[in-house]
């Protein structure tokens, strides 16, 4: 059993085999094998407790259906079921997705990273830069002149998503 500690100091106990889906954790465990119990505690400082919870749910679902089997011999029906489950799993607000990407990135969980990025790209589709700026709360720091200069031909259509 290993222990994950989130930024808000909550502890999560996970079976090693399950947590192994994080390549980062797998390496850490490998490095610390045979050492004291305290070394089996991993701090996940950049994410709050809501995220490890989600990550663990994701791990458990995938642990029951390991990736290699998923690709090689999973029946069509089971693959569909997992796809449906993933669609529901990623159907969350954009800030959670952002946190999931960060967690998947730092813990190195490729399938979670890909899934969350894909969902974010789906959300960005067909939105103007203004809308994306609002959703992501990112300030557009281009000055008007820069906008003209750097995004010359396209600024109008990029910004307003306009119809002719």
């Amino acid at each position: 059993m290993i222990t994950l500690i989130s930024s808000d100091k909550r502890k999560f106990h996970v079976l090693e085999e399950v947590a192994n889906q994080s390549l980062t954790i797998r390496d850490v465990i490998e490095d610390r094998r045979g050492r004291r119990r305290a070394d089996r505690i991993i701090l996940v400082t950049n994410i709050n407790s809501k995220i490890p919870e989600k990550v663990i749910v994701y791990w458990l679902r995938h642990f029951l259906m390991p990736e290699e089997i998923a690709h090689a011999s999973m029946s069509h029906k089971k693959a569909e079921k997992l796809k449906k489950w993933e669609a529901k799993f990623f159907d969350t607000d954009i800030d959670t997705l952002n946190d999931l990407i960060l967690a998947a990135d730092s813990l190195d969980i490729p399938s979670l990273f890909d899934g969350a990025c894909e969902k974010v790209s789906d959300i960005l589709k067909n939105r103007s830069a203004e809308e994306v700026g609002e959703i992501s709360k990112i300030e557009n720091e281009f000055t008007h002149e820069e906008e003209e200069e750097e995004i010359p031909s396209e600024n109008a259509w990029v910004w307003r998503n306009e119809f002719a």
Partner: peptide, 10 residues
Amino acid sequence: DRYRFGAVCK
């Protein structure tokens, strides 16, 4: 979409 994405910030 990528063009619009690029217009969000530097």
